[in-house]
Write a protein that binds this DNA or RNA. Sequence first.
DNA 1: GTAACTGCAAAATATTTGCATCCTT
DNA 2: AAGGATGCAAATATTTTGCAGTTAC
Lengths: 141, 141
Amino acid sequence: MEDQILRLLQKKQLRNTPARRALLDIFLSKGYALSQGELEALTEDSFDRVTIYRTLKTFEEAGVVHEVLDNQSRVKYSLCQDGCGGRHHHDNHLHFKCEQCEHTYCLPNTLSPRVEVPANYEARQVQVLVTGLCEHCREEA
Amino acid sequence: MEDQILRLLQKKQLRNTPARRALLDIFLSKGYALSQGELEALTEDSFDRVTIYRTLKTFEEAGVVHEVLDNQSRVKYSLCQDGCGGRHHHDNHLHFKCEQCEHTYCLPNTLSPRVEVPANYEARQVQVLVTGLCEHCREEA
DNA sequence: GTAACTGCAAAATATTTGCATCCTT
DNA sequence: AAGGATGCAAATATTTTGCAGTTAC
């Protein structure tokens, strides 16, 4: 894991700092999208919240994480799956938010469906948020 | 228009108050999704911002407006098209956000596509946000 | 050494709650 | 008259900016 983190930072030409290592560690171990507030809590306030905001922005611009749509209108971030870089993100998969645990997962083996928009509209990107029950919460119900 | 507003309020059993009339008037004339802040500006501060927040919440619970997903993570609202009521919303259409003017439109003649989620996940709702250029901004480009 | 990263203070923005008052029905 | 709607004050949450000190390379 530690190795994976260092390689990722190197690959994206980002400096190896404690805040970045800590956030990447959390992203890798949690596996679902996280907001600044959640990251602040999970790091037990080891880092200033401004640092977390800025680190997330840096990560996004470097193609390490991407923003995830959330129906509660909170910005969450998730690790990029494929070779995103610069401002070119192509995280073209669905996102699934569980109504119960409120975690948001990337569904990487899915593709956003083609959608029809009216003539005269130019569609450039399609973001899909599916809500329902995740496998874990479904078992409990 | 005035007539339409009064009928809508009556149909949803909501009291006929200045704030509600003003907000409905804006929704009907603008035709795109609006946030609390935009509504506050458009009403030229005639109403306290708390009133706008509460009116929007009331509208949503009554099935007058529905929340619209926004990729900037700001909550916007749009008039319901069909017979939404109570907490049962079935505004099952796509939303289109223009990258240029940043307005978000409902595309009522579209239906959210069926999507495949992994087994063990239970999908209950699909929300789709298409981004691109609206017809108006496309002409100008 | 230098540029980049971080922490702290502070401001700007967004949202919610309680309470007293006013208005709709 | 009664319950609901509104305004005001204030608390909370979220995000951004500036600057000075520190760290990675």
